[in-house]
Amino acid sequence: MNRAASEDANVRTYEDDGFRDTDYQAAGRTRNRLKSGIDRLAGAMRLADAIGAGTLKRFNGVIYALALFALGAWAWASGILQSIWELRDDVIYLTFGEWRDVTEFLSGDFSATLQHIPLVLVSGLLAILVGVPFGVWLSRPYMARYAEALMQVLNVGTTIPTLAILALSMSVLGIGSLPAVFGLFVATLLPIVRNAYAGCSSVPSHLIESATGMGMTPRQIMMRVEVPNALFVIFAGIRTALAINVGTVPLAFLIGGGGLGELIFQGIALNDFGMMLAGAIPVALLAVFVDFLLAQGQYWLVPRGVNPLR
């Protein structure tokens, strides 16, 4: 409709041109009268601006440099920087873990401890692999009776704090990487299912009618029309879900999973600022980085036709 209207507007521009010309002429006369005065004023302002902004920028830079220097000096003097540097091997291990642990865990040996990134990958990928098909399945017409009720439950579920989910997971599965992965999986699953369902259900009915009318089977309609058109919403769900996941992973240490949480919680317990920061800074950077990566993924992986960002 909008497009039709804009096409219409294009037609009308021609008629409008006459009026606009006179508008411009009138405005032009006024402009000319004002021009010289404004020019002088603007010149003065630009000059002042340039001086001001320049000073401000240099001034800002100096402040930043001073602050950074002070922070660094303080950190060095208090030994924080040194202790962070001494923990570098731990940081790397707790971030990446070992490939062997992952393969052992996936082959059913749940005594293997998963570290930070493996925890994110295993629980996140599992949640995507389960959540997307489940959400799509819920959007099938024959599921309509149960789907809405289930969505209510999931909506309530997403308000449950992740620490509580981990605690409950531990009370059922005990201590170790298994309850950690399970808890993370559940916390990640809900937004994914919700968005996959919402995305597929909100594909306009006229698209389904077109697809049916041209002779697509229900399966073809799902794969060629519904899922592709829900892709942006599905991806948004994955992004939200993984943000929650990455934010929760540091807590996995509490129930016996691995990861950088160890440094933070131990640091708090020992009142060791260096250890705290050695955990907290990589955790924060990793979270920001993952979100950035997913935002890029959403931008580039979702096809242009259904991507409102492109």
């Binding site: 077109s210 009318g213 002779g215 058109n229 892709l231 036709g305």
Partner: peptide, 19 residues
């Protein structure tokens, strides 16, 4: 399904697939 593939169908909302 076979029948519909032999019949052209145009609706008011057009129903072009955005993807």
């Amino acid at each position: 399904i076979t029948l519909r593939r032999r019949i052209g169908y145009v609706i008011q909302q057009i129903g072009l697939f955005p993807n």
